[in-house]
Design a protein around this nucleic acid. Structure first.
Length: 638
RNA sequence: GCCGACGUAGCUCAGCUGGUAGAGCACUUCACUCGUAAUGAAGGGGUCGGGGGUUCGAGUCCCCCCGUCGGCUCCA
């Protein structure tokens, strides 16, 4: 038979030839480096027999697929080690993932694993890797497989096979054996364990069987593997650097905010953090005004009747805070929309009034479960950059497009490239299919008109309408939702709001819920990590610091600081009795964008010696020029 | 909420098998008056997250609670 290689060349092989034979036929070096083979685009074991006429390519460490392969191998080696060290453990699944792999185990009663055990587990894994144990595939019929796993008391494997049979009518399954360990597995795998050149266990965590909170909690062990040691070292180094820009760490170091046990999930903003907050608010406020939004402010505490009418009581009660006020039950708002509806209702509205756009830096409270709190990224005290647009059905697409424009303007200011998701009608929803057709088409239309790429999440929309979400990733690769644009046909109905149309008849407006930054808390968290605390001038808590060379020049220094302040800059004077070296070091550590050193020469010439954070000495400028330069940079938000 | 780990001075951390707490930085005082990343010396500072228990004796062992961290579930 023959196969075709990636360069189009034809390779003749004997009947029954395998991937390994093909690799050997091409070259001995390739045969040694081969990990797997791609047959007509599908990844297979090297030991798999080839079919006549197939297009093949040999997968080596140079291919992108190879990492996934060895990580999957490594997951099997981990399971082998665990079963030896902790007999009686039940195994579930162990896939490769982005940057590594995991395996979920159900340990015997009384056994619990922690990172302290990793040393012993890794040592056992290393034994198996050193032993160069081949991965051997065995295709068997499901009954034999079921019998085997029942005998071995591996109920999770039994369940997996039963599901495969039920869902896909599977008759045979494949098993892979490496050393003493056999696992139900689709494959493929590298030829042997020795191909894992570098690996490390990273963390241990709980994970529900099949991601279902009602089912057994398993112990998940995360690890990673690479094809050489240097890559592993580089990866660990990246993790280390990511930790250094964690907003929780920088928040403490730069005195931006703090958290207290006295109010879990609620940040206390230090003056430095508040400066960032205010700079951001200024941008947000002026842009809102320029785009036809009118800012409002509404209460945070409401009679529960409001939440019953809005539907939050039914759907969201468990996540709300309630209190009694003189015998009346009141609830803190988890969303601003019912409040904005009260504003809308304050007058009879005409089609000529629409769209009405209300914006509010609205403070909402949500009782997020304790285990989900995460610095500024997941808080209970949330300040949304909220807005609600009341418009006619015909205006929807244009308004959504306006929101997206606004959003992208904001994100571009920071050099962000958010990931977009369009979530469509869920199973449980209100409104007619025609309404959903129009709503989804309006959102998709707005996205397409802008030529934006987005992912569709079928069934993930809110019960009252579809939505577009904007996601960003934090320093350790976790994805967070920031902005959202949601169409809502339900609230207007629940609150029975209307407008008089040109036909003098009553019509129902559509509501668009829109948050672009998402929340000030989360957005600032993302900003801190994005800039690693080295904020552009316009966001920096302290924009410039004046450093007199000695006490003798403190007076001129104070004059310089005052000039900066007058120009609208956040400036400080470091009047401590310290060496210049010390003052510079401290300012550098605080990541202050500009340092203005003043001594005898500067005082005489009414000048400053300018230094840029992270770059060093810029040179001497006349005071007025220096102030002008900084003010202009601040103004341009560079 | 669930699983696991962790919680010692403002911060980062040390404290072996139980014998009434220690370092660096920060802070205060004094001296130095300094030219682009740490001047030196002295000093103050801790209910060892909270509560209960075991023990002659608990930061250290056990139990409960709170918080934080890593995940999982959730995130209108």
């Amino acid at each position: 038979m023959h196969v075709t290689l990636p360069d189009g060349k034809r390779l003749d092989l004997s009947e029954q030839a395998t991937g390994a034979d093909a690799a050997a036929a091409i070259g001995a070096g390739l045969a040694r480096a081969a990990l797997a083979i791609k047959v007509d685009g599908e990844l297979r074991d090297l030991s798999a027999p080839l079919s006549d006429g197939a297009e093949i390519s040999i997968v080596t460490g140079r291919d992108a697929d190879s990492l996934e392969l060895v990580r999957h191998d490594c997951a099997h080696v981990l399971a082998a080690a665990i079963l030896e060290l902790y007999p009686g453990t039940r195994i579930s699944i162990g896939p490769p993932i982005e940057d590594g792999f995991y395996y979920d185990f159900d340990f015997p009663e009384g056994v619990s694993i922690s990172e302290h055990d990793f040393g012993a587990i890794e040592a056992k894994m290393a034994e198996h890797i050193r032993a160069d144990e081949p991965f051997v595939r065995d295709d068997i019929d499901v009954d034999t497989a079921l019998e085997r796993f029942r005998e071995e008391d591996q109920p999770y494997k039994v369940e997996l096979i039963e599901d495969l049979m039920a869902a896909q009518g599977v008759q045979t399954v494949s098993l892979y054996t490496n050393g003493p360990f056999t696992d139900l597995c689709r494959g493929p795998h590298a030829p042997s364990t020795k191909r894992i050149k570098a690996f490390k266990l990273l963390s241990v965590a709980g994970a529900y069987w099949r991601g279902d909170a009602k089912r057994q909690m398993l112990t998940r062990i995360y690890g990673t593997a690479f094809l050489d040691k240097a890559e592993l070292a580089a990866y660990l180094e990246r993790l280390e650097q990511a930790r250094a820009r964690d907003h929780r760490k920088l928040g403490r170091e730069l005195d931006l905010f703090l958290f207290s046990e006295l109010s879990p999930g609620s940040p206390f903003w230090q003056p430095n953090g508040m400066a960032i907050w205010n700079a951001l608010t200024e941008l947000w406020r002026s842009e809102n005004a320029g785009r036809g939004y009118r800012e409002v402010r509404t209460p945070i505490l409401y009679d529960v009747e409001l939440w019953k009418q809005s539907g939050h009581w039914d759907k969201y009660r468990d996540n709300m805070y309630f209190t009694d006020v003189e015998g009346r039950q009141m609830g803190l708002k988890p969303m601003n929309c019912p409040a904005h509806i009260q504003l809308y209702k304050s007058a009879r509205r005409s089609y000529r009034d629409l769209p009405i756009r209300y914006s509010e830096a609205g403070l909402v409270h949500r009782h997020e479960p304790s285990g989900t709190l995460h610095g500024l990224m997941r808080v209970r005290h949330i300040t949304q950059d909220d807005a609600h647009i009341f418009c006619t059905e015909e205006q929807v697409q244009e308004e959504v497009a306006g929101c997206l424009d606004f959003g992208f303007f904001l994100y571009e200011t920071f050099g962000f490239e958010p990931r977009l998701e369009l979530s469509t009608r869920p199973e449980q929803r209100i409104g007619s299919d025609e309404m959903w057709d129009r709503a989804e088409a309006a959102l998709a239309g707005a996205l397409d008109a802008k030529g934006l790429e987005y992912e569709v999440n079928p069934g993930d929309g809110a019960f009252y309408g579809p939505k577009i979400d904007l996601h960003m990733t934090d320093s350790i690769g976790r994805s967070w939702q920031l902005g959202t644009v949601q169409l809502d046909y339900s609230m207007p109905e629940r609150f029975d709001i209307g407008y008089t149309g040109a036909d003098n008849a009553d019509h129902r407006p559509v509501m668009i819920h829109r948050a672009l930054l998402g929340s000030f808390e989360r957005f600032i968290g993302i900003l801190v990590e994005h800039y690693a605390g080295e904020f552009p001038l316009w966001l920096a808590p302290v924009q410039a610091i004046v450093l007199p060379v000695s006490d003798r020049f403190a007076e001129y220094g104070s004059e310089v600081a005052k000039a900066l302040g007058t120009a609208g800059l956040r400036a400080e004077l470091d009047a401590r009795t310290e060496s210049v070296g010390r003052k510079i070091r401290d300012a550098e550590l605080r990541k202050v964008p500009y340092m203005l050193v003043v001594g005898e020469r500067e005082a005489e010439q009414r000048a400053v010696a300018l230094r840029r954070h992270g770059e060093g000495d810029v040179g001497t400028l006349e005071l007025a020029d220096a102030v002008g330069r900084l003010a202009s940079e601040d103004h341009k938000r560079q």
